[in-house]
Amino acid sequence: MAGGARVEHLVTSGTFSLDGGTWEVDNNVWLIGDDDEVVVVDAAHDAGAILAAVGDRRLTAVVCTHAHNDHVNAAPAVADAKGAPILLHPADDVLWKMTHPRRRPDCDLADGDEVAAAGTVLRVLHTPGHAPGAVCLYAPDLGVLFSGDTLFAGGPGATGRSHSDFGVIISSIGGRLLTLPGETVVHTGHGGSTTVAAEAPHLEEWAARGW
Rank of each mutant, 00 (worst) to 15 (best):
G4E: 09
G4M: 01
A5Q: 01
A5C: 06
V7F: 04
E8Q: 15
H9E: 14
L10D: 09
V11R: 15
T15P: 01
S17T: 15
L18S: 10
G20H: 01
G20A: 03
T22A: 10
E24G: 12
N28S: 01
V29W: 09
G33C: 05
D35T: 12
E37M: 09
V39C: 03
V41M: 10
V41S: 15
D42L: 06
H45R: 03
A53R: 10
G55L: 06
R57W: 13
T60W: 07
T60R: 13
T60G: 01
N69M: 11
A74C: 00
A74N: 02
V78T: 03
A81I: 00
P85N: 13
I86F: 04
I86Y: 07
L87C: 15
P90M: 07
W96N: 03
D106Q: 09
C107I: 15
L109Y: 11
D113H: 10
A116R: 14
A118Y: 13
G119F: 10
L122S: 13
V124C: 06
L125W: 11
H126S: 15
G129C: 01
A131F: 00
P132T: 14
G133V: 10
C136Y: 10
D141E: 15
D141F: 11
V144D: 02
G148T: 03
G148F: 10
D149T: 08
L151F: 02
G154K: 07
I169P: 05
I170D: 02
S172R: 03
G174T: 05
L177N: 04
T179D: 01
G182F: 07
V185K: 12
V185M: 10
T188G: 07
T188M: 12
G192P: 14
S193H: 00
A197F: 03
A200F: 01
A200N: 05
H202R: 13
H202C: 08
W206Y: 15
A207N: 02
